[in-house]
Structure formats: C-alpha cells, structure tokens
Design a protein around this nucleic acid. Structure first.
Length: 477
RNA sequence: CGGGGAGUAGCGCAGAUGGUAGCGCACCUGCUUUGGGAGCAGGAGGCCGCGGGUUCAAGUCCCGCCUCCCCGACCA
C-alpha cells in the first residue's frame, strides 16, 4: 500500500497545507461568525499546555493572575490619545443591552490597559504598593477582515500582563525580563522554536507604548511570525488614568508601566515552524500525547502487551495514549497519529512480539526502530529527549540557512522573498535622507522590519540609534 | 469601501436547450480484511441561500434581497 497524501504538500501550496493540517489534526475550525474560531479538544489540549508552561514562567517572574471585565466603557479608551487612535478601527462596540440603548457604549476589550489601569490607580498609593505585577488569561476581540485560524481572528485567547513600577529603569528591566525569561525561554525550550528578539520600529510599535519589544520566529515557508510582544508604556497611561504614588520622601510621581502578551497565534507558529508533509510534528515538551502505543491487532497477545507497555510508560511519567482500535484499518490509525504530530509511536504486533520486540517510530525524523521490550522504557525516554532537541536543531538550521546579510533595500526585498534579511540600520535610515522612508519602501514591497537588533544579535537599548543597529527584514504573517 | 466569483447531503462538487436531485469522501449495517488512510454488498441522509415572478412544470429562466469566499489600505 502506498502512503496516500492526505495533506496538500507544503511545496505545492503552503497556506493550503496549513489549513489542511489544522482541519485534519482536528485543532480548530471556523465559527459561524466571520473571524471566530472553534478550538477543538486536541487543539485546546495543546493550548492548555502552552498556558501551563507560560503561566509557570509568568509567576516565576513575580506576576499574579487576576481577571478584569470584558466590557469597557468607551470613554476609557479615549483617555490615551494614541491608544484610541490605534485601536478604534478594530473595536467591537456594544450599543444595546437589555433591549435598551446604552447611555454609554461598551467596548469589547481588544486589550485591557484602560480597564486595568483604572484599577491600578485605586490600588497604587505608595511606593510600598510597587511594583504591581498582574497577569490575566482572557479572550479579546479585534475586528478582522482577513481572518486565518489561530493566526489572525476577530476573537482570540491570550495572556496579557500589566505592571506598574516606581522607576523607568525598573519597568525597562521587567519588560525585557518577560521577553527573555518568559517568552523566549518558553518558545525555545518548550516549543522548540528559535526566535529573534529585538526592538520594534516606530511604525510597528504598540499604540500607546514608548517601546515595543518582540520575539519573532521563522515559519517553514520563510515568513516571519510575531510570537509575543513586551511593551514599555512609559508614563502615558499612568498620567491618563492617574496612577501615582508617593515615594519615600513623600513626593508624588506617576508610575512607569509595562504590558505584554502572547496569544493562540502561538498555535499557528507551532504548526508552521515544525510541520511537514505528513502533518504536525510536536516537540515532546508541548505534546499532549507524547507516546501512543498501537496494538496492531487484538489477538496473539498484542492487545495485552500494548496495554502493559502503555501502563508502564505512563507510570514512568510520560503522557501516553493506548490505541487498540483494531476495527479500524491500520493505515488510518497510523496516519491519524502522524497528522496529530505525536512524537513517539510504539507499534506492538505479533510479528515483533515473537522476537520480544516492538517498533519505535519517531515523528520528528520518521524513523522506525525495533526495540527489545525490556528496553522500551529507556528507548522511549531517549527518543523523546532527542526528538525535542532535533526539532529545535532543525528549526535553527532552517532559520540560519534562510537568513541573509544584505547591504541595500533592494537586496533586502529580494532576500525576504525566501527568508529573513539582515539589513544594516544605516542602509535603512540613509534612504532618501528622511527617517522611516526606507521602511516605507520595504512595506510597499510587502516586506516589513520585524525587529531591530545589535549587529551581534543582542537586544539594543531603548534609545539606541537605528544607524548602529541591524534590521531583521521579512515577509510576515 | 473598490474589483472578481460562489451559494445544491456533514465536507468537496456535478447538474447542456426547464421534465422523478446526482457523484466522491465521510456516516450506518453485514461479511471479508487488518504491519501505512482496505474490499464487497446493502442503507440512511436534501426548504437546491431567502422572497417574489414566468410556466402544465423551476436547482435550471426573470426580478429583488441576503450571505459567504478570493484580490487591494491596519493588526497578536
């Protein structure tokens, strides 16, 4: 029997491949209203693992979870000029409730700076109340005209952190701590997705922020995806909402703030950073099912052996699923697990059992190796560890191979057709003298500056001049 | 909002000049299979987007409406 293609190959049509995987792996499907999404159990299980890993890191960074309302009085939005200007095109506004027209329309939160800050103003009185570090897990609504499952939708799930600090320096350090210790660490260590961190340009900055920091990754088609952002808000919101405190000497000052978020878009990144023509490839640390044990058939002791193996692996601490659906065809079962990206598959059948073996299949490299039954536990543990590393390594190699150093806008445009371009800030700034002109030209070509970094790839200072930095240029999702 | 399409079974589609609504996948039942999306046989499933009109007769022709999708300016 030949392996049949259930998915559109990536090389044929990458966006179609993505849609196929999301559908066939039963991650999500579209809701009845445009831009809405139903996250199916398997997709949600992955999201729950992301939440758990991120939440632990957020708490390690000192923030605590809370919850604020989904409805925000419209007037709150108007208090910060740049914020309202940036968000008004994508707001959903409730004008009626209980059958009556509302006195004041309510905005369905697109982000929660305004509502949270109005409470920060009450909670913060003294320097002793600082820093105030809050996170919330919530859904947000931003009207979208061109939705794509997980990547861009009218409603999506995320976590948004909001903090208030006594000094600019402290807020700066915290924003970067979140970027590296929470986001980057999670993305690299758990998702196995290498990221390029850096500062956003003025043009790409969050509406109302002083500086926006971001982690960008490369998908398998060479396009960039913003995985998470961390903003230094300065004192703009604090002034608008009156978040002030008296310091040790009794002087009143406005707080310095940060906000940061990562969303269900990470699901899309996970799919597109690792997936191949056979479907998803999940790194073991994020996989809801790490090992699936398949009984080839129910008879000849295979069913019992599979059950026994599954139990021992579960006892060893792995997330295991036992598949004894011998009424289904073999190919269907295998392909189903493959599409779902389960890292390790153990095939238990009479043929191998008679030799005291089972077949261990790794999804990352699609290898098949017979292993002795008494070695199964050790071999599975080893395979999971290696698979995690291999996926990260493969993604790193792809990122490096498709990242080109360029010297001009033309070269950057060219290189961005297949990957990332590293363009000296000087080349970007010098273009037609006026600042931002070079970036505008890139944008016209469908290419954007993803982040600014130092030449060695490290994070630049908040005010470090463009001319001394390097722009990571790419097409993006 | 400008340009281009499409609404028929859960999904994907076909239905020349009007005449009993079909195909593939999926689903149900049975038998045979079972180490890479199995085979055979049988079966269930429809307000043909909505409203009007023409006609003996409309998925098909005419008018109106609605919705969705694709391509161009912002965003996690």
């Amino acid at each position: 029997m030949p392996r049949s293609n259930v998915l559109t190959p990536q090389a044929v049509d990458f966006p179609q491949w993505y849609q196929d995987v999301v559908a066939k792996a039963e991650l999500a499907e579209g809701g009845p209203a445009r831009g809405t999404m139903v996250i199916r159990p398997y997709g949600y299980a992955i999201w729950e693992r992301m939440q758990g890993e991120l939440d632990a890191r957020i708490k390690a960074a000192g923030a605590r979870n809370a919850y604020f309302p989904v409805f925000i009085p419209e007037s709150y939005f108007r208090r910060e000029a740049e914020h309202v200007e940036g968000f008004s095109p994508e707001l959903a506004v409730v004008t009626h409730g209980g059958g009556k027209k509302l006195e004041e329309p309510l905005v369905v939160r697109p982000t929660s700076e305004t509502i949270i800050d109005s409470f920060f103003a009450k909670w913060v009185q003294s320097y002793r109340d600082l820093p105030l570090l809050i996170n919330q897990w919530a859904n947000v609504v931003r009207w979208e005209m061109r939705p794509r499952l997980f990547l861009r939708g009218t409603e999506f799930l995320w976590q948004e952190g909001h903090t208030a600090h006594a000094t600019e320096e402290e807020a700066h350090r915290y924003a970067l701590r979140i970027l590296t210790d929470v986001y980057q660490d999670f993305m690299v260590e758990v998702l196995g997705v290498p990221v390029m961190t850096g500062r956003k340009t003025e043009r790409e900055r969050f509406a109302g922020a002083k500086t926006t920091w971001a982690a960008e990754s490369m998908m398998r088609d060479g396009k960039a995806l913003q995985m998470g952002t961390s903003h230094e808000l300065g004192q703009g919101f604090a002034e608008a909402f009156g978040i002030s405190f008296s310091d040790e000497s009794g002087r009143q000052s406005f707080c310095w703030q940060t906000s940061w978020g990562a969303s269900t878009r990470l699901m899309g990144a996970l799919v597109m950073a690792h997936g191949d023509d056979l479907g998803l490839r999940l790194p073991p640390r994020i996989a809801p099912v790490q090992v699936v044990v398949l009984a080839v058939r129910a008879e000849d002791g295979a069913g019992e052996a599979a059950t026994r193996i599954a139990e021992s692996l579960a006892k060893a601490g792995h997330r295991v699923e036992l598949d004894t659906r011998t009424d289904l065809s073999w190919g269907r079962r295998v392909v189903g697990w493959e599409i779902r990206g389960v890292p390790v598959r153990l095939e238990v059948g009479p043929r191998d059992l008679s030799e005291g073996k089972a077949v261990l299949c790794r999804r990352d490299c699609n290898s098949k190796t017979p292993v002795s039954l008494d070695q199964v536990e050790a071999e599975v543990a080893k395979a999971l560890e290696e698979s995690q590393e291999a996926l990260l390594g493969e993604a790193r190699e792809a990122l490096e191979a498709r990242t080109a150093k360029v010297a001009s806008l033309e070269e950057a445009e060219e290189a961005a057709q297949s990957g990332f371009a590293l363009l000296p800030g000087a080349a970007l700034a010098s273009e037609r003298a006026a600042a931002g002109q070079g970036e505008a030209r890139l944008n016209e070509a469908g290419v954007t500056v993803r982040v600014l970094q130092r030449p060695d790839g490290s994070l630049p200072g908040a005010d470090e001049e463009l001319t001394s930095l390097v722009a990571v240029v790419a097409r993006s999702y």
